[in-house]
């Protein structure tokens, strides 16, 4: 075959009469960079899971070595947030809505919310901040937001340990119900991963998303009942308002953990349904939404 002999040049541009499409199909070649079908994609993800796991581990080690306090910051940050809100709303502006066992109540709220907000912001940046990695190596891009969430899960371990110490220190009894906490956190991890995947793709399309995330996080912080009890605040309001609050998964994750660990807190069965439903649906929506744009991540 003397294909190239047929090439001609016209106006500084090479034109040929070769049917390249046919040539490629005849030779059994596959289109490069084509998005794999979902099943194959998930299989490839699983095969390269060590990459996500190792990346998360190395990232933590890197932040640890950069700061003097290293790992300490993971715990110190939420403790400071809790102290600030505890001082303002527990001491200075103390009101009726202040729930019993305020310190354990507040600590659970702040610490669990931190898990969500950090996954959200780290997930959003996971593709754009790893541009050179994305541009130089081929791997399923979903590994990057997954690595970001895995990192948050690793960091959750010391956070939960400190949270438990504080709670026990303030006299909460250790009960069998505590065994449900890992289940709630596992569901929350699925939920966070879904959110991270969605925000990772949106950030690629529109960088402005990173500016909105702190605002959304703040709105969620105030509407999820971190330092006050929504149940007490809405006690005298129409009951549908409380139902509406209970449809906020983040509020439900926090309330469910409180219900297991802090006496005087109760969770309604509806919350379990909301938590299970939103975790599954967020994860599925997130995976599909992210996967559909797989071919785009290297271009922008």
């Amino acid at each position: 075959m003397r294909l190239r002999a047929r090439a001609r040049y016209r106006g500084g541009r090479r034109v040929t009469d070769t049917d390249y499409e046919k040539l490629a199909t005849d030779a059994g070649l596959e289109r490069v960079g084509a998005r794999a079908p979902l099943g194959a994609y998930l299989k490839e993800l699983w095969e390269r899971r060590h990459f996500a796991y190792t990346l998360a581990r190395f990232r933590i080690q890197a932040t640890m070595s950069e700061n003097r306090l290293g790992l300490g910051w993971i715990v110190i940050r939420p403790i400071f947030t809790a102290i600030i809100f505890g001082t303002i709303f527990g001491v200075i502006m103390s009101s009726e809505s202040r729930p019993d066992n305020f310190v354990p109540f507040l600590v659970v709220g702040v610490f669990i919310f931190e898990f969500f907000s950090k996954s959200f912001s780290a997930g959003a940046k996971s593709i754009t901040s790893n541009a050179s990695l994305v541009r130089s190596l081929n791997f399923p891009r979903m590994l990057l937001p997954i690595a970001a969430v895995i990192q948050q899960v690793f960091e959750l371990v010391p956070i939960i340990a400190v949270m438990t110490l504080i709670i026990v220190g303030f006299g909460e009894p250790i009960t069998w119900a505590w065994l449900l906490v890992p289940v709630i956190l596992a569901l929350m991890t699925m939920f966070n991963l879904g959110i991270a995947l969605i925000s990772a793709r949106l950030t690629v399309h529109l960088r402005d998303v990173t500016q909105i995330i702190p605002l959304l996080t703040r709105i969620l912080f105030y509407s999820s009942g971190i330092f006050y009890s929504l149940e007490q605040v809405l006690k005298d309001k129409p009951p549908w308002l409380l139902k509406l609050v209970e449809l906020n998964p983040i509020h439900d994750f926090i309330t469910l953990v409180r219900a297991q660990m802090v006496t005087g807190n109760e969770a309604s069965p509806l919350m379990w349904w909301v938590v299970i439903g939103s975790s599954l649906s967020m994860l599925i929506i997130g995976v599909i939404f992210f996967w559909r744009a797989e071919e785009r991540y290297g271009r922008d």
Partner: peptide, 15 residues
């Protein structure tokens, strides 16, 4: 060619 950037039009095929 490496599949890191997708062609806006046309395509690259490889074995």
């Amino acid at each position: 060619i490496a599949g890191l950037t997708t062609a806006t039009q046309g395509a690259v095929y490889a074995s």
